[in-house]
Amino acid sequence: MNDYDVWWHLLKDAQAGKVPTQVVPNAMRNILEQFFTFTTGSSEFPEAVKKLANEDTSSKYLALDRFVDRGSHRDGINGPPIDWSEYDVPYLLGKFRAMFAALNQEQHYRMKMGEDSTESEVQHA
């Protein structure tokens, strides 16, 4: 596995309840940065994040938006404290999937999360 695959593996483990919720946003951010910057070269990611922020104006999403959209190396600020009791893995993964769907990349999300039969068949072969 490369680094990118490890981040996806961590999300699958989170979905199965094997890792704390607190690690999920960091994994999401690293995947998004690598996928949309290096893999697709897409400049549409900031627009997709804005669209999702407009659709979900809850305080729950606001903190996640700040965490995900800030870039892991953009500045030395870790962002505001997050009340992790408000988060759950299904909420986080649902928003993550929506980010991929907003850019017509949901198939990649399904493949990496093992929801695509092709990926499942390859893993079990």
Rank of each mutant, 00 (worst) to 15 (best):
Y4A: 15
D5M: 08
D5H: 13
D5R: 13
V6R: 15
W8C: 05
H9Y: 11
H9S: 06
L11H: 06
K12N: 13
D13K: 06
Q15G: 12
A16R: 14
A16G: 09
G17K: 14
G17T: 15
K18H: 13
K18I: 01
V19L: 03
T21F: 14
Q22G: 07
Q22Y: 14
Q22V: 11
Q22C: 11
V24E: 01
V24W: 05
V24K: 02
P25Y: 00
N26L: 15
A27K: 01
M28L: 08
I31R: 01
I31E: 00
L32E: 00
E33F: 00
E33S: 05
Q34H: 05
T37G: 15
T37W: 05
T37H: 09
T39W: 06
T40W: 01
T40F: 07
S42C: 06
S42W: 05
S43N: 07
S43V: 13
E44G: 09
E44A: 13
F45I: 11
F45G: 02
F45Q: 10
E47F: 12
V49K: 00
L52R: 00
A53I: 10
E55S: 09
E55I: 06
T57M: 14
T57V: 14
T57D: 02
S59I: 12
K60T: 00
K60D: 01
K60N: 06
Y61Q: 13
Y61K: 07
Y61A: 04
L62C: 03
A63T: 03
L64W: 10
D65L: 09
R66E: 01
F67P: 00
V68R: 01
V68S: 02
V68M: 04
R70L: 08
G71W: 00
S72Y: 10
R74I: 03
R74K: 11
I77W: 02
N78K: 06
G79K: 04
G79S: 15
G79W: 03
P81Y: 06
P81R: 15
I82H: 00
I82S: 01
D83R: 02
S85P: 04
S85H: 09
E86I: 04
E86N: 09
P90E: 08
Y91N: 03
L92S: 07
L92V: 01
L93R: 00
L93C: 03
L93A: 07
G94C: 03
G94N: 08
K95C: 05
K95I: 03
K95P: 07
M99F: 10
M99E: 05
A101Q: 02
A102Y: 07
L103G: 10
N104W: 09
N104K: 13
H108M: 05
Y109V: 03
Y109E: 09
R110A: 02
M111K: 12
K112I: 11
M113E: 12
M113N: 01
M113Y: 09
M113Q: 04
G114R: 03
E115S: 05
S117D: 10
S117L: 05
T118L: 11
T118V: 14
T118C: 14
E119M: 08
S120F: 15
E121Y: 13
H124R: 12
H124D: 12
H124A: 05
A125P: 12
